[in-house]
């Protein structure tokens, strides 16, 4: 990669535009590779500013039932980490600008081997969220990520106190992912008041953009997250749209991807309606 990293460039451009980012999530290979690819390719056109792609894992400890089932469908459809990178590579062939964050658990990455970060960067991945690698355990993966030019996006939770936050922030690049609730994905949502208190607490310590995830479901919630922070990550709500459209055997129908993309468009329109100071 040359020049400004895609994630920093995208947030800078959005700041100049005076708006926040919509960051939709998809689980690789859910419910099959072609449908997932159609959704991934369609994201930017539907209004995605950045994209988070999840690599399925058998034991997703931080995820609620919706993402768990998405992962199980993905695995059944043959998802692997290498296969996920190949999806990104194909996406990148048609889109050089939209940043992609790969979200996953550590074991498949360890299993892939020491070339993972280099291969991910070459495929067009810009940042990593590795759910079960806190800064204390990042001594192996972090130098590899840095050498490959990948941002290490870290989670800050309501349970992260100020002293710990400084430590986590020091190990973060790209943006901060604020986990809005103490809980797993797709369960409950934070209130606007909770977020309005939490985000300034992080801002005191960092100039990095902050995206809010976990429990951001509706266009209204996405708009609120974009107003209070710099972006909204929407995952389970999109997977719910996808899952609701699958047939009895769990297969996608011809319009499934479009239904997800329509929901992304609704979220994007809400996020874009919020004007922010540059």
């Amino acid at each position: 990669m040359t020049g400004i990293p895609r994630i920093a460039a995208r947030f800078a451009a959005l700041r100049a535009e005076g708006r926040g980012a919509l960051i939709p999530f998809l689980e690789a290979f859910d419910p099959d590779r072609a449908t997932a690819m159609e959704i991934l390719r369609g994201f930017p056109g539907a209004g995605a500013d950045l994209i988070e792609i999840g690599c399925p894992f058998t034991d997703p400890m931080a995820d609620g039932p919706t993402v768990q089932r998405a992962g199980q469908r993905g695995l059944k459809a043959g998802a692997t980490l290498a296969g996920t990178l190949q999806m990104v590579r194909e996406f990148r062939a048609g889109d050089a600008a939209t940043p992609i964050i790969l979200m996953g658990y550590y074991n498949p990455i360890l299993s892939y081997g020491a070339n993972f970060c280099a291969d991910a960067a070459a495929a067009g991945v810009d940042g990593l969220i590795i759910v079960d690698v806190p800064p204390e355990e990042a001594d192996e993966i972090e130098p590899q990520a840095r050498a490959a030019g990948l941002d290490m996006i870290r989670l800050i939770a309501p349970t992260t106190d100020d002293a710990r936050m400084i430590k986590v922030l020091a190990a973060t690049s790209g943006f901060i992912y604020y986990v809005a609730i103490t809980g797993i994905t797709g369960t409950r949502s934070a209130t606007g008041a909770e977020l309005a208190e939490a985000i300034p607490r992080i801002r005191k310590h960092t100039k990095l953009p902050i995206a809010i995830g976990f429990g951001v479901r509706t266009p209204e919630q996405a708009a609120e997250a974009a107003r209070i922070a710099d972006g909204a990550v929407v995952a389970s709500a999109l997977i719910d749209v996808l899952a609701a459209d699958l047939d009895a055997e769990g297969h996608a129908k011809p319009g499934t991807a479009q239904k997800v993309l329509d929901q992304v468009a609704a979220l994007a329109s809400a996020v874009r309606s919020v004007k922010k100071g540059a």
Binding site: Y106, E136, L155, R164
Partner: peptide, 20 residues
């Protein structure tokens, strides 16, 4: 101090759990 027995063990948990 890191909870390691040789290369094994550690604290591979999500940030929400880490403080606890």
């Amino acid at each position: 101090a890191r909870g390691r027995f040789g290369p094994y063990g550690g604290r591979f948990v999500a940030e929400t759990l880490m403080p606890l």
